[in-house]
Structure formats: C-alpha cells, structure tokens
Write a protein that binds this DNA or RNA. Sequence first.
DNA 1: TTTCTATTGTTAAAAAAATAACAATATTTT
DNA 2: AAAATATTGTTATTTTTTTAACAATAGAAA
Lengths: 206, 206
Amino acid sequence: METLPDKTVERLSQYRRSLNNQLAKGKEHIFSHEIANLLHITSVQVRRDIMLIGYSGTLRKGYDIKELVHLIGVILDTDQGQKIAVIGMGNIGKGFIHYLYEKRSKLKIVAAFDINPEKIDKTYADVYCYHLDKLEEIIQNENIKIGIITTPPLVAPEIANKLVNAGIKGILNYTPKPLSVPDDVYLEEYDMITSLEKVAYFVKEK
Amino acid sequence: METLPDKTVERLSQYRRSLNNQLAKGKEHIFSHEIANLLHITSVQVRRDIMLIGYSGTLRKGYDIKELVHLIGVILDTDQGQKIAVIGMGNIGKGFIHYLYEKRSKLKIVAAFDINPEKIDKTYADVYCYHLDKLEEIIQNENIKIGIITTPPLVAPEIANKLVNAGIKGILNYTPKPLSVPDDVYLEEYDMITSLEKVAYFVKEK
DNA sequence: TTTCTATTGTTAAAAAAATAACAATATTTT
DNA sequence: AAAATATTGTTATTTTTTTAACAATAGAAA
Ligand SMILES: NC(=O)c1ccc[n+]([C@@H]2O[C@H](COP(=O)([O-])OP(=O)(O)OC[C@H]3O[C@@H](n4cnc5c(N)ncnc54)[C@H](O)[C@@H]3O)[C@@H](O)[C@H]2O)c1
Ligand SMILES: NC(=O)c1ccc[n+]([C@@H]2O[C@H](COP(=O)([O-])OP(=O)(O)OC[C@H]3O[C@@H](n4cnc5c(N)ncnc54)[C@H](O)[C@@H]3O)[C@@H](O)[C@H]2O)c1
C-alpha cells in the first residue's frame, strides 16, 4: 500500500481507540456515522479513510469492529511493536509512561533516561530509568527506534543529537525548542502553548 | 481583520516564541528565511503569514523583531490576557502550570481544581488548587474563559459539562476521551498517542 | 416477489494549505 | 551614476484535505 495521508494516519489512531472502547461495551458492528459521531467528524471522512486502508464493511451491519481494529493494527503497528525511550522523567515524561502503561499499547516504552540521581535506577510503571550516560548503549542493545524528549528545553538539541547518533529513527519532541535532525529521522514536535494560544484566539474571535 | 487560517494562528504562536528567543540574544531584525530555519518551514510560508497579519518588513533588514512580536501579541492576546483554569492536578496538569509559569505568558492560569484532598488548598507555581465543587463559583467570579482538562478520561465529559455550564468559551482536552460541546464553545483536543503512533507509522514506512 | 430504505464505496468537486514564481525595490558595489 | 544583489510582498499554481454527490446493493418491509 502506498503511504497513507498524514491526516488519515492520525485519524486511524483515533478510530482504533474509540473502536476498542466500543468493543469493550460489547458492540460488534458499527456504522460510519457512528464512528464519525464519536470523533466529531463526518461519516464521509470515516468511509474514505477506511476505503484507503482497503477494508470493506457490509451494507446492513456496517463495519466489523474487531476486523477493523485488527487491520488498523496491521497498518500502524510493526510486527513486534516498536520500542520507545523517554528522556527526561519529569511531569510530562512520567505522565506519558503511566498513560501508555494503562493503554497496553503495542508501542512499548522500554527505557527512561534522566540525569537527576533521584530519578535514576528506579522503575516507573515497569519502565526502568537509567542515567543519560547509558543512552547509546541501551538504545542499541534494545534496538529502540523512537525517542520522546521531555527534558528542559535547553538540553533538547544535545539529547536529539545523542538519539540520532545512537540510531533512533523517530523523535517526538515535547520541549518548545525546535530541533534539527537528518532527513531520515522523522520528527514530530508539539507545544502545549501553541494549542492553548489557538484556543484563546478562536475564543476571542467568536 | 477577517479570521486568520487555523494553521497561520498556530504558526504565529511559534513565531513569537522563536522571536522572543532571538530578542533575548540581542538580535533586532530578522529575515523570513531565518525565521523559517528556526521552525523548519519555508520562508515563503513565513512571508505569507506575516502578510496576512498586515505587517511589513524592510527590504534590507527584514522584519523588526520587536514590532513583529508586538503585533502577534495584538492578534493572539486579548487586552488583559485571558484567564484559564486547569482541572486535574496530576502529572500533565502540574506540568502545564509550571510551563506557563516559566513562560510568563499573557495567558494566565488563575485556578486549578481537583478532588483529591492531597492536591486541594495548595499552591502550585502561584496557582491555587480548589475543590471541584468550587468550579462554577470561581470561574464566574474570576471571569475565566478557558478550561484545560487533565483529569482521568472517565470523568472528562462530566467536567466539560460543568465548564460549559459555568460559562467557559474554550476547552483544551488532554484526555483521550472525545468530548461534545455546544457550537459556541471552541474545542481543541490532543492525544499524545496519536502523535506517537504517527511517528511510529512514518518510521516504519521509511 | 417487488418496493423501499439505509448504508457503503467511490468518484467528482470544493476548500484549505503549501509552494512557486516573480515583479518591485532599497541598498551595496562597481 | 549604473549595475548587481538580496529580499520583500503578492499573485498564481500545485498539492493536500475535506466535503459532496451518487450509483450500487443488501436486507427489510410491503
Ligand atoms: N510541550 C508541552 O506541551 C509542554 C508542557 C509542559 C512542559 N513542557 C516542556 O516539557 C519538558 C518537560 O516538562 P516537565 O514539566 O516534565 O519538566 P520537569 O522539569 O518536570 O522534568 C524535566 C526532567 O528532565 C530531567 N533532565 C534535565 N536535564 C536532563 C538531561 N540533560 N538529560 C536527561 N534528563 C534531564 C530532569 O531531571 C527532570 O526529571 C520541558 O521542556 C517543558 O518546557 C512542554
Ligand atoms: N493527552 C495526552 O497526551 C496524555 C498523556 C498522558 C496522559 N494523558 C491523559 O491526561 C489525563 C491526565 O494524566 P495525568 O498523567 O496527569 O493523570 P494523573 O492521574 O496524574 O492526574 C489526574 C488528576 O485528576 C484528578 N481528578 C480525578 N478525578 C477528578 C475529578 N472528577 N475532578 C477533578 N480532578 C479529578 C486526580 O486527583 C489527579 O490529580 C488523563 O486523562 C490521561 O489519560 C494524556
């Protein structure tokens, strides 16, 4: 399958989450407009996304939730699930680990790193926290491919470099410091202030 | 000025952050391609955004950083700055408060809410944490217009209702539970897992 | 059995966003 | 003083994303 549109990939992740919720409630089939309502989007968009991943529902029952969740998994997850490291075990880093732990996602955080002795050599929701010095060693031994940066902004570029050198292929940056990485490393950045200022702007405009 | 495109609003917030960094370094003028490099976007996009907000640079010096920052402020900020409440003082909620505190943004978090007695009646980076029961009272007295939800997902819809009833006009939802709000309330939702699964997908595709 | 209905899958159109193209021009160089 | 240069501002084009339109049809109702 050729690469899916950016936005479709984002939505697939959201579909899966909502679909799993529905499964848990005992629902087995679902219509496009029901999925749409759960996510506040249109049913056309849902059908289009599902078309793009090559799945078909039935005319009277809609989509088989289990099958759909499974297929989304095939697309989003790798075979063994991808391994992830978190660098910076502060509020955000810890929140992330607990969140993923609860979700039992295929994506596994397998190591955390910090420089504060109080954080190091402890376990947070089954994730062991190492000293930053061990970064390269652990990442290579464990074959970790994704890094999440939640350190103070100032050190983020230095961490990004270390991650790239250690062979990481994807970085999720939660610090407000924009990073530079080689072309073959996928970089996603997020800043809460941007979200917040966006809300503030549209509240003001209304 | 008619309403700016969604994406431009997001970028303005990012421009301002980077521009303030440059100001702090003593830089007074900046070219579109320099801003572009800081944010990993193209210079055309920068110029186009700046055009949209009606600012002009000079041909040989580029943009006056102070003026530009000021103008972005006029657009993104309200006169006295908007007041914000955070509901749920866990990892994410606390992280947010500390982050905004450091930034000294125009956007002010003026109240926090929780139900855990250990969290209540304490102050976090100058923000006082009240019991959830006080929500409506405080929001109305303080004229708070924006709410950030960082509670466990299960209670998020209930919190959203309370916020709407109290007169909130914008909600930033960090729980993975999709919310429904009236049309006149602006809703922004963010889920870290979506970002992470997106990174994982594109890492896998490369 | 035939008609009706609700829903899918898909193509077409529209809207939004990003990128390219380039004219205008202030400043520097020759 | 003329030519060269670098950069802006803006329009045009392309690409991406969303929305609309609708034919096809499984199953329910008549
Ligand atoms: N992106 C957002 O939306 C958002 C929101 C809030 C905070 N933040 C940012 O996220 C980051 C983390 O925020 P937080 O509230 O968790 O901060 P925090 O201060 O609670 O945690 C930072 C952690 O990084 C560790 N650290 C410091 N230097 C390090 C290094 N060189 N290597 C490894 N670890 C190191 C610290 O010991 C600490 O545990 C900050 O950059 C902050 O600005 C982002
Ligand atoms: N969106 C994301 O990217 C992301 C990442 C990690 C966690 N999360 C989500 O963010 C939320 C917060 O995560 P966290 O790690 O900070 O969780 P947390 O458990 O540390 O904090 C939750 C807080 O909410 C409080 N609370 C519980 N019920 C409440 C109620 N009815 N009213 C007010 N407060 C209440 C708790 O006392 C606690 O202080 C969760 O929904 C979690 O799933 C989101």
